[in-house]
Design a protein around this nucleic acid. Structure first.
Length: 480
RNA sequence: CGGGGCGUGGCUCAGCCUGGUAGAGCACCUGGUUCGGGACCAGGUGGUCGGAGGUUCAAAUCCUCUCGCCCCGACCA
């Protein structure tokens, strides 16, 4: 492999400079490009393709749980945004404003949505009249804008793409059930399709969404040991219902405020995939979301070999059409070896080599991206074997990521232990600490070692024995 | 928003200190030989040096402003 490392095209190793590695992968795998507008990236077809597969798989789950898609406006009148005090205060520094239409100054500034609670709340107040209108379960796929000081492709950009669910319920119990239901949808989606293991839990007051009663999140661990909030689900209580006057008449004819939730995941997940699975050879995409699940690389030396291989490629295509997202890389100007590096960089889960020897056997040689295991697959069985192989890769990526996450999760008995871990030992990862909910202690920790409370896991069973009886643990980490 | 670094063909950079009419490697195009882990030879295309203003006979080079990118800190999905 010394050749790969000395080649001018080699990636900066993760261990040398993780940020640089990340930037290079994004650029060279052609996921995204800088646009010339601060913090706004262009999603190139390959990067956008990943997002489209995420959308498809998550949207299916959102709809299966009874939600409908809708679309609300990009622009929100200032007066609307200002109604919920805590909400405004939280977002004020990050809001971009439209002040002019043509060269005429507007009477009222319009915010480019940083999130849509306000405008959706205003509409819900018109739409909801009776308990028969509840629950109201709406999701929107949209772009939002938050003026960020420091940006990184996918992880934090000024404009990003996401989905935001907004629901209204008759009772606090229904509302809380929805919050947890969607958190579980996220957990299942991220673990099953993105192969990213997460901890689902609740946030502290310091970390909760501006205007929420309670925030829940799923938290992942990146390969550099930093935590990434991968999705959030908020219990908004009646805060927005009260300021936007969202009420319904119950069975007794009594007027009540609704209980609301909101929940979202964003294109940040693409960054999560990159930093969970990527290695020194580049990207590794979980097959479920890989735009190209398998790439065919034909090989020949002599014209007669070419004549034998080329028609065989059609038979490979035929065997896999409708079963596997396949790319046949028949570009003539690159050698097979060059293509191997290219597709590894782009994270294609499986490569299929088709040369004269394979054609003679009526088979293709498959090579896994994750462990480079080779397997000769006869053409007759290819249609069944390759999808199964892709599932094996998907499962292996998840297990490897979970093993890494667990290996980088430790425990601390006291504040001092925790600070020592992050500060003096310079370690990263998750640290579980017995937790009683002291905001003062949380602030101290943040100040002393820059670690924040990522979540208080809902499932405490895996931390059994770490906290005194009756006490829970909270997970701390340095975070993106 | 503070501190630091950087903007020169698509990419990585040299040239800047000490002003004198823009270079290299890779990529790209053409032709030929190649192809089971980043092929080779020959010929070729491509840059108002991030932008604006200033100094000067003359600016990639010196000065001012501005925009963008990267890294480190405070805020966030």
């Amino acid at each position: 492999m010394s050749q790969a490392q000395t080649a001018p095209e080699h990636l900066t190793p993760q261990s040398e400079d993780f940020s640089k590695w990340y930037a290079e992968v994004v650029q060279r795998a052609q996921l995204a490009d800088h646009s010339g507008v601060r913090g706004c990236i262009v999603f190139r077809p390959y990067g956008y393709g990943i997002w489209e597969h995420m959308q498809r798989l998550l949207d299916r789950r959102i709809q299966a749980t009874g939600h409908q898609n809708a679309y609300f406006p990009l622009l929100i009148p200032e007066s609307l945004l200002q109604k919920e005090a805590e909400h405004v205060e939280g977002f004020a520094p990050q809001v971009a404003w439209v002040t002019h239409g043509g060269d005429k100054e507007l009477e009222e500034r319009l915010a480019i949505r940083p999130t849509s609670e306000a405008i959706i709340g205003a509409m819900y107040s018109k739409w909801i009249e009776s308990y028969r209108d509840l629950p109201l379960l709406i999701n929107q796929w949209a772009n939002v804008m938050r003026w960020e000081m420091v940006t990184r492709p996918f992880l934090r950009t000024t404009e990003f793409l996401w989905q935001e669910g907004h629901t209204a319920h008759a009772t606090a119990e229904d509302c809380q059930a929805e919050v947890l239901r969607m958190l579980e949808v996220y957990r299942d989606f991220v673990e099953t399709d993105l192969a990213i293991p997460v901890h689902a839990g609740s946030k502290s007051d310091a970390e909760k969404f501006a205007g929420a009663e309670m925030t829940y999140s799923i938290e992942a661990l990146m390969k550099d040991g930093y935590a990434l909030q991968a999705g959030t689900s908020h219990n908004l209580g009646q805060h927005f219902a009260k300021v936007f006057d969202i009420t319904y008449q119950d069975e007794q004819g009594k007027r009540q405020h609704v209980w609301q939730t909101s929940w979202g995941v964003s294109t940040r997940l693409i960054g999560g995939v990159i930093m969970t699975h990527g290695d020194d050879h580049g990207l590794q995409l979980p097959p479920h979301i890989a735009p190209v699940q398998a790439v065919v690389v034909p090989i020949w030396r002599k014209p007669e070999e070419r004549a034998a291989v080329l028609p065989f490629l059609d038979r490979v295509r035929e065997a896999l059409v409708g079963r596997v997202r396949l790319q046949v890389d028949d570009r003539d100007q690159y050698s097979p070896g060059w293509k191997y590096y290219e597709h590894e960089l782009r994270g294609v889960p499986v490569r299929l080599e088709v040369g004269p020897k394979d054609v003679a056997k009526g088979a293709v040689m498959s090579v896994r991206r994750d462990n480079r295991a080779k397997e000769s697959i006869p053409l007759e069985g290819l249609g069944e074997r390759l999808p199964a192989l892709l599932e094996e890769v998907q499962a292996a990526l998840f297990l490897a990521a979970r093993e890494f996450r667990d290996r980088n999760t430790s425990t601390a008995a006291t504040l001092e232990d925790l600070v020592r871990h992050f500060q003096e030992d310079g370690r990263r990862g998750f640290v579980a600490l017995p937790w009683e909910g002291s905001a003062v202690l949380e602030a101290q920790i943040k100040e002393k070692c820059a670690a924040t409370l990522r979540c208080i896991p809902l499932d405490q069973s895996r931390f059994a024995g770490m906290a005194p009886a009756g006490r829970r643990v909270a997970l701390f980490a340095r975070a993106y």
